[in-house]
């Protein structure tokens, strides 16, 4: 251990790559704090992704896989690396690019151009699904109906579902997203902050990703950036914590059923997108947002289904009963 430390010191002085020890170091990698050259960074980075894929058996030969592409850095890197690894390591996987057009004028146009460029560059077929086609509403129209507040809920819910619907249009077996370590660390933190133990158990699973729009998300992101500045490995440590939480096996995970209306996976009678869409179409756009009592299962922590209502109030009564017992029966020594 000590010799490694000394070796690192030496390379710092001459600023040579800590891995190949030949080229000039081009960057200090946040994850390991090593100074390495461009080529070594590429190869280390690609190898790590390859290891994750093989260790977790993410792909099988002959599968069709869609890459959720937003045109941003994460998904562009993902598309590049996956198509490269597919050639190099012969996964035998057929990759597609899948983009969502929310219909926000002046926002998505540029990034869709990037995705179209990626299509040509990496030779991956591209499918663009738009909110307009799927739901009959563009984001611009939704904002007009609901105002500037709370429209993130629509965007988030619709996007998650649009990705899945796009995936089924492409007839793919799997969908990969460019969620990076920062995103997952953020999700772990947010789930602690809002007390969602079931999601806390699920959010670090490598084969799922959840979307959680919140007001304090911004704080959390900033906090993570600050943490990274003090201690780069903190982000990976948060994920490690998330993986190791001792969650009782009896903790009820939200059950995955199907939406009665559209058949999409949902933990409630109606999926969140249908509730929101129903509200929009009936001219009640606030339906399903926030902590109001929605009629048809608002999903998450907000809504209460008619069937569960009586049960919930029972629990409440039970709690108050035990509390009053505790107060009246405390014993003095």
């Amino acid at each position: 251990m000590a010799t490694m430390e000394k070796a690192r010191r030496r390379t710092t002085a001459s600023s040579l790559c800590a891995i190949c020890n030949q080229n000039k170091a081009a960057l200090k990698r946040p994850k390991t704090a090593q100074q390495i050259c461009r080529e070594c960074f590429y190869s280390v980075f690609e190898d790590e992704i390859h290891n994750v894929i093989t260790e977790n058996n993410l792909f099988k030969s002959g599968e069709r896989v869609a890459i959720g592409a937003s045109g941003g850095k994460d998904s562009t890197v993902l598309a590049y690396v996956l198509s490269k690894l597919n050639h190099v390591h012969n996964y035998g996987v057929e990759f597609f690019l899948l983009s969502i057009d929310e219909g926000i004028s002046g926002y998505r146009d540029d990034s869709l151009e990037t995705v179209k460029r990626n299509e040509i560059q990496y030779g991956l077929p591209l499918k663009i699904v738009s909110y307009k086609d799927l739901y009959g509403w563009t984001m611009d129209e939704i904002v007009k109906a609901i105002g500037l507040k709370n429209n993130c809920t629509f965007c988030g819910v619709f996007r998650r579902q649009a990705l899945d619907r796009g995936a089924s249009l492409l007839k793919v077996d799997k969908l990969v997203t460019g969620h990076n370590a920062d995103d997952i660390a953020e999700t772990v933190l947010l789930n602690i902050l809002r007390g969602d133990i079931a999601r806390l158990g699920r959010c670090t699973y490598i084969t799922t990703g959840i979307y959680s729009p919140n007001a304090y998300r911004g704080f959390a992101r900033e906090f993570i950036k600050d943490l990274e500045r003090i201690r780069p490995r903190a982000i990976l440590d948060i994920i490690k914590s998330g993986e190791n939480f001792r969650i009782a096996t009896s903790t009820k995970m939200p059950e995955q059923g199907t939406c009665e209306r559209c058949g999409y996976i949902s933990s409630q009678e109606w999926c969140k997108a249908c509730v929101l869409l129903d509200g929009l179409n009936r001219g009640l756009p606030k339906l399903g947002i926030g902590r109001t009592k929605t009629i048809n299962g608002g999903g998450g922590s907000g809504g209460v289904k008619p069937g569960t209502k009586s049960r919930l109030s029972n629990v409440g009564m039970k709690e108050s009963r035990t509390r009053s017992r505790q107060y009246s029966g405390s014993v003095d020594f």
């Binding site: 772990v188 933190l189 602690i192 943490l227 903190a234 990976l236 440590d237 948060i238 490690k240 914590s241 998330g242 993986e243 190791n244 939480f245 001792r246």
Partner: peptide
């Protein structure tokens, strides 16, 4: 709780 999570001590937190 938060700082233990950040330090990777999720297992021992409870």
């Amino acid at each position: 709780i938060i700082s233990s999570t950040v330090k990777g001590q999720g297992y021992s937190l409870p």
